[in-house]
Simulated scan of single mutants.
Amino acid sequence: MNIRAELLKLAEPDYQVFASRLLPGTPHILGVRLPYLRKMAQKIVKEEATSFLSEREMVYFEEVMLRGMVIGYLKNLPLERHLYYIKEFVPLIDNWSVCDSFCSGLKVVGRHPEYFWSEVTAYLKSTNEFEVRFGVVMLLNYYVNNRYVEQVLGLLEETMHSGYYVRMAIAWAISVCYVNYPQLTLRYLQKTTLDTFTYNKALQKIRESLKTDSDTRALMKQMKRNEKTATPS
């Protein structure tokens, strides 16, 4: 399969405009819809995964997205090989869409959380905004459970990167913790030293959750901090 030719054929100018608005500053977006990319990724996994993943030339946003999807669809690999592909891919992430799509596709981590724990959490100490976001989004996808939730909240508290996409991911992660462990997360929110921007975004995301009742929405509104104390982004 000529991957780039196939992507160019599937590109839609109107969708390219829409996608570019969602991803300001992200260059070389063709405008290929995600369902088409998923179908291509599944076909690549069946026919030419190894040769595809050995390719180093990626110009378009969709080529990077496709690579992440292929890694997620891989099966029956030794865990160390899967980890190799993950670590090779993470430095390519330069926007929230690739990051979040890649994380959601890594079901292997959900099946083997202990094996990947130290690797995932190491990214929280990176100076790169999207590497840190990768770590946070991986936590909210695969580690908000009985075994790890307290450690997750502790790590979110310690993650110091000030990048906008990191702080939004932390707020999202806290809201996921709250939906699943409301009392534990409420105690965390009552004593957290998070900056005001991230803290208030977490409360907002909790309020906006479809699983949040009216009493919780009222409580989150009461807990909101004065925006004037927020740390500039």
Rank of each mutant, 00 (worst) to 15 (best):
E119G: 07
P13Y: 08
L37G: 06
K211G: 12
E119S: 15
M65K: 02
R217C: 10
L66E: 01
L66R: 06
N76L: 10
Y15Q: 09
I29T: 02
D14H: 14
I29E: 03
L194H: 08
A19Y: 09
Q190D: 09
S175T: 03
N200V: 00
I44A: 04
A122T: 06
F61H: 12
G154C: 12
A41Y: 05
A169N: 08
L189G: 06
L8M: 14
Y143P: 09
K46T: 00
Y60A: 12
F197Q: 06
H28Y: 12
P232L: 05
C99F: 11
K87A: 07
K107G: 15
A230V: 00
G135M: 04
T26Q: 12
R225T: 02
P13M: 07
Y73C: 08
L153V: 02
T121K: 15
I29F: 01
L155Q: 10
V109W: 03
L10T: 01
T185S: 06
P182F: 11
F116S: 11
L7T: 07
L153Y: 01
K205W: 05
W96P: 05
Y123R: 07
T231P: 04
V179M: 09
P182N: 10
A230N: 04
T231Y: 07
N180I: 06
Y115N: 00
Y15S: 04
T121R: 14
Y84E: 15
H112D: 11
K191S: 15
N128W: 09
M160A: 14
K46F: 03
R167L: 07
R147F: 10
E114L: 15
Y188A: 00
Y15W: 13
T212N: 08
V149N: 04
G163A: 15
G135A: 02
N146K: 13
Y143G: 08
L8F: 11
V64Y: 00
S233E: 13
D100W: 11
W117F: 11
L79M: 09
D215A: 15
G72I: 07
Y199Q: 05
E6K: 14
V132W: 06
S101P: 06
E12F: 11
L140M: 15
L219D: 01
R111Y: 13
K224T: 14
S118C: 11
M223S: 06
V136P: 10
K87Q: 15
L7M: 09
I44L: 05
V136L: 11
S51R: 14
E114N: 13
V90Q: 08
I93D: 02
M160Y: 13
L203C: 13
